[in-house]
Deep mutational scan, measured.
Amino acid sequence: TEYKLVVVGAGGVGKSALTIQLIQNHFVDEYDPTIEDSYRKQVVIDGETCLLDILDTAGQEEYSAMRDQYMRTGEGFLCVFAINNTKSFEDIHQYREQIKRVKDSDDVPMVLVGNKCDLAARTVESRQAQDLARSYGIPYIETSAKTRQGVEDAFYTLVREIRQH
């Protein structure tokens, strides 16, 4: 089974770092803004072998026109913010609204991801993020692309959301 996953969120929150940590098991430290990259990885989730087709997208506003296209083809979405960047957390709402509009559905598989949880300088409390996820009816997972904490959990949870859909 193949799953088309799309990673969305503001610029600099760590979308590529999360994806590369999942696929290649290493942490990319330097920031190089993405336009669009796709990665494929075969994994076993709950005993089922599946192929993850992951689209890593641009957070930069100037590429926002490309969003409709990949939102149409994606089956599930990782909505990523950084726990030390309140603005990126506030941006999640717009991504969710755009996904709902493009998919013409209120019920699209999504996982809210709070990345950079290895950093002490948190400005978005776990509780705020949990409340937001609960209001959307989606899971919330904290990750660190640096330490790998929660990385597999985030992507695998999204696959489970798609399966249950």
Score class of each variant (00 low, 15 high):
Y39Q: 03
P109M: 12
L51F: 02
I83S: 09
Q24T: 07
K103A: 05
G14S: 00
T57F: 13
V159F: 14
D104F: 03
C117H: 06
L78M: 10
G59H: 12
L158S: 04
F81C: 00
N25F: 08
T73H: 11
T19K: 03
E30Q: 00
V28D: 10
S16G: 00
S64D: 10
I54V: 06
Y140E: 01
T73P: 11
D56L: 03
Y3Q: 08
I162E: 11
R101T: 06
D32Y: 04
E62P: 04
T157V: 13
H93I: 00
Q98F: 13
V108I: 03
H26Q: 08
M71H: 04
E97K: 11
D56K: 05
M66K: 15
V111R: 07
L22P: 06
F155C: 14
K116L: 15
V80A: 05
I83R: 07
L158T: 10
D53K: 02
G14I: 00
Y3E: 01
L132G: 09
I99W: 01
K87T: 05
M66A: 14
A121Y: 04
I141E: 04
R148M: 14
I138R: 04
Q69P: 06
E125Q: 12
H165L: 10
F89P: 01
R101W: 07
I20C: 07
V113Y: 03
D29K: 02
V80L: 04
D91M: 12
D153A: 11
V113S: 07
G11V: 15
R160I: 07
H93E: 06
K41G: 11
V44Q: 07
K103M: 12
C117D: 13
L18G: 03
R148S: 11
E62M: 07
R134A: 10
G114D: 02
T143I: 15
T157K: 08
D91T: 07
T19I: 08
P33R: 12
I162W: 07
L55R: 02
G14W: 00
V44K: 03
A129D: 00
V7Y: 03
K41T: 12
D37W: 06
Y70V: 12
V80C: 10
Y3A: 03
T73E: 06
P33H: 06
Y3L: 07
E142K: 07
F77E: 05
Y95L: 03
I35M: 04
K146E: 15
I83L: 07
E62R: 15
Q21I: 13
T1F: 05
V7S: 06
D107K: 04
S126W: 11
C117S: 06
L55M: 11
L55V: 04
Y95F: 05
I45K: 07
K4T: 05
T86K: 00
S38T: 06
